[in-house]
Each structure stands twice: as C-alpha cells, then as structure tokens.
Design a protein around this nucleic acid. Structure first.
Lengths: 195, 195
DNA sequence: ATGCTAACATACCCCGGGTATGCGAAATGG
DNA sequence: CCATTTCGCATACCCGGGGTATGTTAGCAT
C-alpha cells in the first residue's frame, strides 16, 4: 500500500470512528485516545491529521453537514414547484434528524463546541443556504409576502432543528406525522400571506 | 452574621459570579477555582453547595430560566386576547435573548451540558409550557386549525430560540424590527388557517 | 463549657488534551 | 542501487482542571 493511500486510510478510519463515538456519547464524553486505538492507530496519528480533538470534530461535522445538505437538496429536486420543493426539503430534513449523527453532532454539540458563529457559518454554507434561496425565490415570484428573508429563514431553520430533535427522541412513530402536519400549517400560513 | 445568612451569602456570591462567567466565557472555558476565588471563597465551598461544576451551572440555568419565564409571562399578561398575548410573549422572548445570560447559557450551552432531555424538561417547565398552553387555548377556541399542539410548539420554540440568537449577534438595530415582521408573518399564517 | 455539626479551607489524586521528540518505511535523486 | 530526506506515525512526557478526602474553625444546642 502506497503512502498516500495509507494516509487516506487512517484518516478515514479516524473520521468514521470519531463520527460513531461523537454521535453516541457526545463530544466531551469521547476520549481521543480511545478513538485512535479503536481506529487501529495512536493519538499521535490523530494529531498529525487533525491537529486537535476539535479539529477531528470539525471534520466530522463538515462531513455530516455535506451529506445532510445533499440529501435534502436531492429530495427537494424530486418535486416541481417552489412550494412543493420547500415542503419536501423540510420533510427530508426532519426525517434525517432521527439519525444521531445529525441530531447529536450537528444540532446539539456543534453550536457550543465550534462556537455559534462558526456553526452558523457552516450551516449557512450547506443546508440553510438552500432554505434562504427557496424563500427568496418565493418572495420574488410574488408567492409569499415580502417579509425580510433572513430572519424568517432563521426562524424556520431553528424550528426545524428543534422539531427534528423532538422527533428523534419520542420514538412514537406517529410523531413524524404530527410534525409533518404542524409543518404544513406553518408553511401553508406563509403561503396565504401572499395576497 | 448568623450561620444561615452566611450560607446564603456565599451561595448567592457563587451563583452570581458563575452566571457572569458562564454568560461571558461559556461553560467549558470557565474554571471553577477562579469562580470561587472571585466570589471570595475556595473551590471547597462551591462543592459544598453545588456538588459539582455542573451542579452550579444547573442552578444558574434554573435561575435564568425562571427570570425569563416570568418576564415573558408578565409581558403577555399586559395584553388582552389570546393572539395578542402570544405575540407579546414571543416578542418579549426575542428581546430577552439579546442578554448573553440567556443566549449563551440557556440557548447554546445548556442543551449539550445538561443533556437535551434535562434541558427540554426545564424549558418545558418554564417558558415552553406557556407557549403550549397558549396554542392549546387557540385550538380549543377554534381560532386556529386543529393541528397537533406539541410539535407545533417545538417548531415555534426552536424557531424563537434560533431567531433570538441571530438577533443577539447581528448588532443591527433594524434586526429586531425584521425579526418581528417575520414572526408576525408566521403567527398570522397560523391564524388564517382557522377556517 | 463542651460536645457536635455545619461551613468551609487545604492538599491531593488523576484523567485527558496537548506537545516534543524519536523512528522506521516510503519517496526522491543522483 | 544506495544515500538522503521526508512523511506518517508511535512514545513519553507535561500540566491544567475537575473531583475528593481530610483537616479546621466557628456557631449552636444542652
């Protein structure tokens, strides 16, 4: 095995093991030494690749963010019309939130570990950007009241985050239906405000 | 100074100094030893009163939660009619979010430090309970569509949290007006769904 | 006044993140 | 094909800070 492949292999191993543990135990409960040994290397490797425990976490967050953003966007693309796309994207986000890798890492730990500013910047670069664009498109098309898009996006984004966490907890299979109903009410309310 | 008063005095001093630092630096950056000395005592006192660093933080969170809940409720009571009360309460919450003691401690650190479950329980016991009751009253009075109240409350609560954080950051004085506009659009949308 | 307990102070343990250094194998180039 | 450098880690160590066990003094009851 060449040197470049070896490097990428250990990097992947650390990333995956870190992701597992961060999702299961939370950032602070995870000890880097154990992550490294579970990945078949030592702490030194982790510091060589990521610089710090926070660096590893940041890389994991980035990966999960990217996956989530792609999944939501893909689900939205499967529908036609701005309203249907927005609705589909929101539902996909809620469904994805049941994954601990998303709920625990992205929604609970990331804001306080990375700091709210950096977290928000990453969120903006992936998921929230689509939301903002979707809202802007609706306003421009005259399909929604001309309200400031940015705070509205924050309002919806935060609401979805919280709802996803709520959904992830209550194992109730009916919860997803209820959440979808509540979501439809809110989105439908925005729609009616067009006139 | 009697024994009981002395006890309460040091307890208050620790609580206040802890609150200041937690709000300014965040939970993990705060070192208990420094909190204690700034309060005029040593670490032993803190452990005697609160059992652990987390115990002190929990006490601070509880205090801030209580203040916030009271402030929001008081602001809501000053208005008549369920919709006006809900709106006033939401606006009061957004305004209160600019205080770092609220944004940093309650909204950013508390969920990951106390765990999302415990945080949610405390939030429910103070602020969120009022929100749920207000929504329930609207549904019962036929002033809103009969949608599951619980997920809707989470959706709104999370949205307000995020909006408050957004508001607390962008020092833009116009931001509060924009947020209020976005909020009115969402709440107004719920209202129209009554028919 | 005297035992007893509450309210701390002091000294210590130890886990775990971070760092400095060593080392062997793969790339490099002559 | 061998010398040299560099990369990809391993090993050993430091040290800050949460937690704990024990000591000490000041109040309160009897």
């Amino acid at each position: 095995m060449g040197r470049a492949e070896q490097r990428e292999a250990t990097r992947r191993a650390l990333l995956e093991e870190g992701r597992r543990r961060f999702a299961a135990e939370g950032y602070h409960a995870v000890v880097l030494n154990e992550v490294a040994h579970a990945a078949g290397v030592t702490k030194g490797a982790a510091y060589h690749h990521f610089g710090s425990k926070l660096g590893l976490f940041r890389a994991v967050v980035e990966e999960v963010q990217e996956e989530l953003g792609a999944k939501v966007a893909a689900e939205a693309e499967r529908h036609a019309g701005p309203w249907e796309q927005l609705r589909a994207g929101c539902r996909a986000f809620l469904a994805a939130g049941t994954d601990p890798a998303v709920s625990r890492i992205l929604l609970v730990d990331a804001p306080t570990v990375l700091g709210w500013d950096e977290w928000r910047a990453m969120d903006e670069a992936h998921s929230a950007r689509h939301l903002t664009e979707a809202l802007r498109a609706l306003v421009d098309a005259g399909l929604m009241a001309d309200v400031p898009v940015e705070p509205l996006a924050r309002l919806l984004s935060g609401g979805m985050n919280e709802a996803a966490l709520w959904l992830a907890r209550s194992g109730d299979p009916d919860a997803e239906v209820q959440a979808a109903l509540a979501l439809d009410l809110v989105l439908g309310g925005l729609r009616s405000g067009a006139a």
